[in-house]
């Protein structure tokens, strides 16, 4: 399997001198194409920081990030920007939507930035909204949605440009379990059926167990990195599938 992201001695220090805080203290890891990786750890352990570095949103204090074996410190801003806009999809810990724009416009944003042809934009946005089951809300203002709906808009925005890798920071963090499972369902469907690499930050052990692999960090260091056993995965999957089926049934009822 191909390594898509590799880090070597990744360190991140916030602040300077006496107030310096070492959020990451040397991270070495490899993420393979088509994997689903959960980054777990306590609050403040450095999960978001690590994800931002992996997603090239921030620069490490020291250490290197390689994408497809290429050193990202050697890349121009333009290359980094097009990497993010063309190959990455993001779901942030907060929603980060433009509240005054419509759902449609919010989902369209990555396409504008990626300079997608006008003729393709509409179809892509409609498709993404269909996947998250929000086609009916396309014309609504983003502010008028419920929390779960907002999170689904964020997923739609993350997948609209068919990314190769999706980075999701607590994608189910502030959702009830039914909606959370629906989101999870969506993400793993992309992973299983479309080969999208998933990097999930979460403190939900159940969600983590749905992934192939769990990276546990504490205090800015990796303390555990292991493949999830099939049995563990299936039990989690089973529970998840049960909920998913319930949701599906509910939806179908609604449609009738």
């Amino acid at each position: 399997m191909n390594v898509v992201i590799e880090t070597k001695g990744l360190k991140k220090t916030y602040g300077k001198k006496s107030s310096a805080f070492h959020a990451l203290k040397g991270i070495d890891l490899k993420i393979y194409e088509g994997e689903s990786v959960a980054i777990v750890g306590k609050s403040g352990s450095g999960k978001s920081t690590l994800m931002h570095l992996l997603a090239l949103l921030d620069t490490p204090t020291s250490g290197k990030v390689y994408i497809d074996g290429k050193n990202t410190t050697d890349m121009s801003n333009k290359q980094l920007n097009s990497l993010r806009s063309d190959r990455f999809g993001f779901v942030f810990q907060q929603f980060f939507m433009n509240p005054n724009d419509t759902v449609y416009e919010n989902v369209m944003l990555p396409l504008k930035i990626a300079k997608t042809k006008y003729s393709e934009r509409r179809k892509k946005v409609e498709n993404a909204l269909k996947i998250v089951d929000l086609s009916s809300k396309a014309k609504n203002k983003a502010t008028d949605l419920s929390g779960g709906q907002k999170q689904r808009v964020c997923i739609a925005r993350a997948i609209v440009n068919n990314p190769e890798i999706i980075f999701a920071d607590e994608p189910t963090g502030n959702l009830d379990s039914a909606t959370g499972d629906k989101i999870t369902d969506l993400l793993f469907d992309l992973n299983h059926n479309h080969g999208v690499t998933l990097v999930l930050v979460t403190h939900d052990e159940d969600l983590a167990k749905l992934c192939n692999r769990i990276i546990r960090i504490a205090d800015g260091k990796i303390i555990d990195d292991y493949a999830v056993k099939k049995s563990e995965q299936t039990s989690a999957e089973k529970r998840h599938e049960k909920v998913a089926a319930e949701v599906k049934a509910k939806n179908e009822e609604k449609k009738k």
């Binding site: 993010r84 993001f90 980060f96 433009n98 930035i113 990626a114």
Partner: peptide
């Protein structure tokens, strides 16, 4: 600020 941050995160250039 957030909107700008988001746009930059999504790959919009300076």
């Amino acid at each position: 600020t957030r909107e700008i941050g988001l746009e930059k995160a999504l790959g919009m250039s300076k």
